[in-house]
């Protein structure tokens, strides 16, 4: 069965967004990630677990260390989905701006 978590939960949290940004630059160990935050290691570890369950992060073993890396394709998928909704409204408003401009020009003729 698929994990109950969904990707919206993953990106709605500011700490998790920050973790994604960090790992986007390079794969990192849990310790290195935790050092970047003021929260407890356990809290960061919980965030990493959620992101992994959402298939946004994967683990890879390198020597004795575990590194987390970003699943770029999954990230793109979310981004497209959210952007659609955000864009719908931005597009509508821009189209209204255009119509209003045309109407104003017409009345000024």
């Amino acid at each position: 069965m698929k994990a109950r978590r969904d990707i919206f939960q993953a990106v709605a949290d500011p700490t998790r967004r920050a973790i994604i940004s960090l790992i986007a630059l390079q794969a990192m160990t849990p310790n290195a990630i935790a050092e970047q935050f003021n929260t407890s290691r356990q809290a960061v570890s919980k965030h990493l677990q959620i992101l992994t369950e959402c298939e946004l992060l994967t683990q890879k073993q390198q020597g004795r260390e575990i590194y987390y890396q970003l699943e770029i394709n999954k990230m793109k998928e979310i981004d497209q989905w959210l952007n659609q909704f955000r864009k719908i409204w931005e597009d509508r408003f821009n189209q209204i701006d255009d119509i209003l401009l045309k109407l104003k020009n017409k009345t000024n003729e």
Partner: peptide
């Protein structure tokens, strides 16, 4: 969840 995520990026 959807709206919260959109808000963050808007």
């Amino acid at each position: 969840k959807m709206s919260g995520s959109i808000q963050q990026g808007f």
